[in-house]
Design a protein around this nucleic acid. Structure first.
Lengths: 356, 356
DNA sequence: ACACCGTGTTGACACGTTTCAATCCGAGTG
DNA sequence: CACTCGGATTGAAACGTGTCAACACGGTGT
């Protein structure tokens, strides 16, 4: 890394002072109020004057000052997107959905990262309140919603993403049916003849993974297999690839005879890490062990074999959340709504029938 | 996907009207100006009064209104982050760096997605101007900087990320030496005994990939190998995995005898897609073909074999850019600076010596 | 006693916009 | 022609903050 420091003379002359609505009004021979109307309710102003004003705007190169307008109106035109972890590819797809839908409503998106920390979540809530944000799409960091409820009281409504269970009583929410996902994965494995399996998970405190686990259990029960006897649980402190790789010992514990024939992972990253670890041990997927993931991240079908996984409609999740928020902001007769998507099992190469 | 619509009565009573600085002042028995000083320049106010004011703030649950302050001061406390594609994992790491550093300077980050479209870039620039953003970190969509220069003239400075070449004369920039990356990859391949190779790339209009290509060529030249005779170029319309997979025919064109022994991809996604395609053709990496990627996305070491790739310090890139911006905003004696990072080759399993 | 100093504090004003009651105007009606 | 009506426009009053010249005050040196 190196540095050079030639600083050419400033390019353009710094514009003396940005022109405001009043100046435009003067230039067009109308009152400031009319200019405001042209900007916000063009239908209420006569065509002729509208054209005059628009000409003046173009000529003076006027650009609206949103601070002024939010100050006066009490609300800004931006919404917060509070994510758990910017890095996670799951969230980036969601962000794209939120972004697109917000743009369609003329709102801009402020990205805030909780980094899985309640402290940061609190700080970000405060920030949104200070900005008088119109609303927010939030993935709550845990079950303690006090900071977010405070945000609501400050007049900034939010819709919960992926945590509908905990936020149902509060406002809108968008969730994916985690139990159904686990159930689908479990039925798939049972259908392939696997009679015992391991659930590889991150922190069990996370509600989503508990539901996926329950789904898996129910699939076994429904097939007449006792989940307590047939299922094993391996818990790791985080839901990432490194932890998946490190989990390989725990998964294989008990020697070859005890080795599970199938592993359902709470997360694609865990699954991919695990597959890497298995490969290093000389075990083959799916011949020796079947692996199922969750999320369908972009890379899930780039590994060999492709990862069988439970796909979530990430982009649609983001869109739906933002749409709900927009409705809450614009529609006076809005009623809170709980939207629930159903995930879909994608069968690829990482699962196969039990060897006979 | 299903919907339920039970809307419980509103949780908390909507606070009548947010309390302002004047109300705090009244409550503390001081003037509004003093409250403002407590908030912004605490050192200029006597300890006793400061405590009084802070008590009033706490008691009234006052939360600052940033619209008011930006209006008055002419600048807001948020910076834009204009990325090419929110989905790309490269950018998300950068975003994390920008976020962290911005938080340290008390700035909040507005995420805007150009989606590789000049139109959207223009719209986003306009948005930033309207918000009187303090500054921005920008990955320009192409060589036409007119919209961004307009933004500068509006008083919003920006630092260029990954496009220093084109923005050098304009302001600060942070880049990675793409030529050095291509050179390192090329030397690695030559060192393994490969005497011919293919460069698999996205749109050649992108400056970064041209430099990587040139680096590769120079590595061959430097080894006494004529690049024109030894290198082949396969160009695809986008830099993603799907295109990599589809490129496999073009890469293998000419039959087994013409098949390249090594492929250098402009991008990890291309590389991973290509590896998938090669696998489907029954070709083995690295035994039949060596593959090198670029970026070192998180998944690069989860495939089998691990992808040899040129790593960029993504997080640091973001931090550096934001740090430069912060300096430009705070330091009156700021001089524009061009920061250049050097990438690093990570050798994993996808490359091996030429079969003898 | 007086001028002088520095530290704290004050008040009023300006920032750019939206809103809303009031006003204006021209066309239609009796 | 007088009158009404409705659409188009106006003008002034906020919104909450930062700034800055002015001021109060207790202490110091002459």
């Amino acid at each position: 890394m190196s540095t050079t420091a030639p600083s050419p003379p400033e390019g353009g002359p710094a514009q003396s002072r940005p022109v405001g609505i009043t100046e435009v009004a003067k230039h067009a021979g109308v009152s400031p109020g009319t200019v405001s109307n042209v900007l916000n309710r063009p239908e209420r102003v006569a065509e002729a004057t509208r054209l005059k004003v628009e000409a003046a705007i173009a000529e003076l190169d006027y650009v609206r000052n949103s601070s002024g307008s939010s100050l006066r109106s009490g609300r800004s035109a931006s919404v917060g997107l509070l994510v758990l972890d910017v890095t996670n590819p799951f969230f980036t797809e969601v962000a794209r959905g939120v972004e697109d839908e917000a743009a369609a409503s003329g709102l801009s998106v402020v990205l805030l990262n909780s980094a899985e920390s309640r402290e940061r979540q609190r700080g970000n809530a405060r920030l949104l309140a200070e900005q008088r944000a119109a609303g927010a799409v939030v993935m709550p960091v845990d079950d303690d919603l006090s900071d977010l409820l405070w945000l609501s009281r400050q007049g900034t409504p939010w819709v919960a993403l992926d945590r509908g269970d905990v936020a149902e009583a509060v406002g809108c929410s968008v969730t994916v049916d985690n139990h159904a996902g686990g159930l689908a994965a479990g039925r798939h494995l049972v259908g392939l003849g696997h009679e015992r399996a391991t659930f590889l998970t991150g922190p069990f405190g996370i509600e989503q993974v508990r539901r996926r686990h329950q789904g898996l259990r129910d699939a076994f029960t429904e097939a007449g297999l006792d989940p307590d006897a047939r299922l094993r649980l391996v818990e790791r402190p985080m839901l990432n690839a490194e932890q998946g790789e490190r989990a390989v010992d725990a998964v294989l514990a008990g020697g070859p005879r005890q080795r599970p024939a199938a592993v359902f992972c709470a997360n694609d990253q865990l699954a991919l890490g695990l597959m890497k670890g298995l490969g290093q041990r000389g075990l083959r997927v799916p011949d020796d062990i079947s692996v199922v993931g969750y999320d369908n991240v972009d890379f899930a079908d780039l590994v060999h074999p492709g990862l069988t996984t439970v796909a979530q409609p990430k982009y649609e999740l983001g869109r739906a959340a933002m749409r709900l928020l927009a409705s809450e902001l614009n529609d006076p007769g809005h009623r809170h709504e709980q939207l629930r998507f159903t995930p879909e099992l994608l069968v690829r190469g990482s699962t196969s029938a039990r060897r006979t």
